[in-house]
Amino acid sequence: MNRDLDAARDLVVDLAVRAGRLQMERRDTLKMGAPKAHANDVVSDVDIASERLIVDAILAAWPDDTIQAEEGHGRSGGSGWMWVVDPLDGTRNYVSRTGPWSVCIALYQGEQPRMAVVHDPAGNETFSAVDGGGAFLNGQPMSVSSGPPLAESLVGVSFQPNPKTKERTGKLIRELLPVVGDIRRIPAALNLVYQAAGRLDGGVALDTNLWDIAAGALIAREAGVTLGGHGPDFSTELTIGAAPALWDALAERVRAAA
């Protein structure tokens, strides 16, 4: 079944902006829920309300689609299309007011990502891509950095803050920090779209979920970022991204440590 992906992107951009506006408006009155997988895996009532807003609108437009969503509003469908939704990637930053967060929505046809939107509510920035159509920031084309030498590069690091992954990330940072220009810890979706915009020269994400990286990965790829993992394909266990000129040097270091 064919679908107008540009029209879908326009609708999803509006949805992501609406969810982001809700998050800004309710930040002072949010209520925390019980932690999910571990003590640092936090969730608020705003996460849940944002996901409900997004999922309800998607199902109103495409009632037969599958939805995979972080906060439990997923469902099966028979259309062959799947939405992957993270309504608030970076909840710890959001609730503690210590950094950025984003709204992430991706559309798959079978196993192929076809359209993606990542919206930064605080920065009023919307990153988007359609498969084969390039990557955009607030409607303007964007592209990857030229790729400085490894020793001058700025690299994003993202990871799930459970005990096992924190230990793994500590080893990676010990190996990586002395050989790169500097690192930034940042939620996975923004890590990827900042690479797409040329703000980061490369990035690493460890032990994510699909909803953390699905949207950002398509946007990064469309901007010219090289993506991979322990092999040529990236995964939720290990995602490496870099400007093409930096890829070999960064990937070698990350694979040896991660």
Results as ranks from 00 to 15, higher is better:
residue 203 G to N: 07
residue 224 G to P: 03
residue 33 G to I: 11
residue 241 G to A: 07
residue 206 L to T: 00
residue 64 D to T: 14
residue 237 E to K: 11
residue 105 I to L: 12
residue 124 N to H: 14
residue 162 N to W: 06
residue 48 I to H: 12
residue 175 E to L: 02
residue 164 K to Q: 14
residue 108 Y to K: 03
residue 255 R to Y: 01
residue 122 A to V: 13
residue 256 A to W: 00
residue 27 R to W: 13
residue 206 L to D: 00
residue 231 G to K: 06
residue 157 V to G: 00
residue 73 H to P: 01
residue 87 P to Y: 11
residue 78 G to P: 07
residue 111 E to M: 09
residue 213 I to G: 01
residue 98 T to Q: 15
residue 143 S to A: 13
residue 90 G to T: 03
residue 192 L to C: 06
residue 213 I to V: 15
residue 239 T to Y: 01
residue 124 N to T: 10
residue 57 A to T: 09
residue 124 N to Q: 15
residue 47 D to S: 11
residue 187 P to L: 10
residue 150 L to S: 03
residue 184 R to E: 10
residue 106 A to Q: 03
residue 199 R to N: 05
residue 230 H to E: 06
residue 190 L to K: 02
residue 95 V to A: 07
residue 44 S to Y: 08
residue 42 V to S: 09
residue 207 D to Q: 08
residue 166 K to L: 14
residue 214 A to D: 06
residue 47 D to H: 11
residue 204 V to L: 03
residue 2 N to F: 14
residue 10 D to R: 15
residue 20 G to N: 11
residue 165 T to M: 00
residue 174 R to H: 11
residue 71 E to L: 09
residue 219 I to N: 04
residue 144 V to E: 00
residue 121 P to K: 08
residue 97 R to H: 14
residue 41 D to V: 05
residue 88 L to G: 03
residue 246 L to P: 01
residue 54 I to M: 13
residue 32 M to R: 15
residue 215 A to S: 14
residue 152 E to Q: 15
residue 36 K to L: 15
residue 121 P to Q: 10
residue 109 Q to N: 11
residue 186 I to E: 05
residue 238 L to V: 04
residue 70 E to S: 09
residue 204 V to A: 04
residue 174 R to A: 13
residue 192 L to T: 05
residue 49 A to N: 12
residue 8 A to V: 15
residue 241 G to L: 05
residue 28 D to W: 11
residue 201 D to T: 04
residue 174 R to K: 13
residue 116 A to L: 10
residue 213 I to C: 09
residue 204 V to G: 00
residue 96 S to N: 13
residue 210 L to K: 11
residue 79 S to L: 08
residue 206 L to C: 02
residue 66 T to R: 12
residue 236 T to M: 07
residue 108 Y to V: 01
residue 22 L to Y: 15
residue 152 E to Y: 05
residue 104 C to F: 07
residue 62 W to K: 07
residue 224 G to C: 07
residue 47 D to K: 07
residue 220 A to H: 01
residue 217 A to V: 04
residue 193 V to A: 09
residue 123 G to V: 06
residue 134 G to K: 04
residue 242 A to D: 01
residue 100 P to W: 09
residue 178 P to Y: 10
residue 41 D to C: 06
residue 244 P to H: 06
residue 238 L to N: 00
residue 144 V to A: 02
residue 209 N to D: 12
residue 211 W to H: 12
residue 171 K to S: 04
residue 145 S to Y: 04
residue 246 L to H: 05
residue 137 L to C: 05
